[in-house]
Simulated scan of single mutants.
Amino acid sequence: MTARAGLAADFLARSGWGTARRQFLAGDASPRRYDRLTLGDTTAVLMDAPPDRGEDVRPFVVMARHLRALGLSAPEILAEDAGNGFLLLEDLGDDLFARALARDPGREQALYTAAVEVLATLQAAPPPVGLPDHSPAFMAEAAALSLTWYARAVTGQPQDPAPLQRAMAQAMAAHCTARPVLVLRDYHAENLLWLPGRAGLARVGLLDFQMGSMGQPEYDLISLLQDARRDVSPALAAPLIAHFAQITGADPERTATACAVLGAQRALRILGGFTRLSLHFGKPGYVRLIPRVWAHLQADLAHPALAGVRAAARLPEPTPEALQRITDLCGTVPTL
């Protein structure tokens, strides 16, 4: 037994789950992992977030309790050991939006409408104090990851991120001017669960929100509708953007423009982030998602508000050869 496995066993024993059967449930882009625990007829989830690898469970705890206080379905915290990076969580089940819709595509509008309305409720409430603020400068720097990681990997040449950072910061300063609200940042079909046994907006289960921050209202909306892992048709997305504007009292045209700007920023960041996950962290599975992100980026860059970004974002197309190069470099870049 490793030292960390021993710490986990001690935590579970203290929490009354020492004899539970453990089964791997999920991992993600971070060092965190999740195991499902079964004890008799009861289940729970163990979050293992190693502090020595940069993880901290405390933001998750704060956000989970905030969301639950709003009547939303974040997992209840059943036990915690923040010092060692363990949480025992309520098990919300396996019915992720992505799985539910694979079984029954006809429910897409209903599930996505509920997810949009959750955002309106979330954003109308005062946020937790002390959250980081994702300013236009911060967001522009993140967008430049598309050059420093993605374009560099494909071309083999260093890239100057400054023109893209300036153009993105200008676009955001001009078109993303709403009062900052709480954004969960990874709001998409593999982090949302459908809980039909609950009522109202509580039917939408929320996962992976520990990176919550202050940002623009449309950021989580476009994360939902321009999903790197699942196609959402424009015929569904456009009415949902209009619905979001209506229920939040925002100007529809401004909302649509902000969605394009934030969508481009997010796609640029993800292109760099997915490449970094392959090259630096040895996770090549993210490379196959790049073409969908590229398609989102091209759709967003067609908006007139992004003319400057379009001129500055001179990125190589993710051809099969380009993607193979990123895959071939998997795990070979310890630092930039």
Rank of each mutant, 00 (worst) to 15 (best):
L207H: 04
L225Y: 07
Q226K: 04
W194F: 15
G249N: 04
L289W: 10
R198L: 10
L306H: 13
L315G: 00
Y286I: 13
T255W: 03
A302I: 14
D251S: 12
V309D: 05
P217A: 10
G197C: 14
I247D: 02
F281M: 09
L262C: 01
I247R: 09
P316I: 05
A245D: 08
G215N: 05
L301T: 14
V309W: 08
L297F: 09
W194M: 15
A258Q: 09
L201Q: 00
R230C: 04
A311C: 00
R254A: 15
F281K: 09
L221P: 06
P196W: 06
A267C: 12
V287L: 11
R310T: 04
V287I: 13
S223A: 12
L206A: 03
I290E: 06
V287C: 10
A258L: 08
P316L: 03
A228Y: 07
M211G: 11
D220K: 04
G272Q: 11
G282S: 00
F244D: 02
A267D: 11
M211C: 06
A267Q: 08
Q246N: 06
R269S: 15
V232R: 02
R310V: 04
D208Q: 08
W194Y: 14
V309C: 13
P239M: 03
M214N: 03
G308P: 13
